[in-house]
Amino acid sequence: MQKFTKISGIAAPMPLVNIDTDMIIPKQFLKTIKRSGLGVNLFDEMRYDDDRNEIPDFVLNKPQYRDAQILVTGENFGCGSSREHAPWAIADFGITCVIAPSFADIFYSNCFKNGILPIALPQEQVDVLMNDAEKGSNARIEVDLEAQTITSSDGQVFTFEVDSFKKHCLMNGLDDIGLSLEKVAAIDGFEAKASAERPWV
């Protein structure tokens, strides 16, 4: 997995609440058997018209946001389906950090498996960063995972919470299956005990 340590980049503003995973990557792109190549279809129905032309007004089609590495958005981002195609598409586009007042559970977990750092901040702080993001390439936002800080373009520093295990995996690009398999003795032990207690399982 791609490591995430520190970035300084342009942030794209999407001030909408309840952006769901169907919006992030519509179902017709779930028929792939690969993880790669979905970036071009990120936010597909908002991004292209019926003839597959780019809709100029959509934020990621604007010249100043084409290289955005950060997305600043509204509450409950990533609600809906469990499709990991959503973070795959976000990462494939080049966005590695999403900042919102809140995230849907499954999407939040999925991000950490794909080198993306989702950051939940109070609405007032998101508003400050949203204003920053509106400035396009004139404003760069810095995100430091080690220090757990975000620095706005005018130097305001916000701290954020992140689970220590998730942080460790993300900073080191660790494959968590490998880590869990190191605990195979515990799993074996549990399985033996559980199958004695609940043999019908």
Binding site: I106, F165, I177, S180, I187
Partner: peptide, 17 residues
Amino acid sequence: GIGTSEVEHVLATQTLI
């Protein structure tokens, strides 16, 4: 519900983090 990386994790370990 779980994501695909977690599907792989459960297939390999029968556990979820």
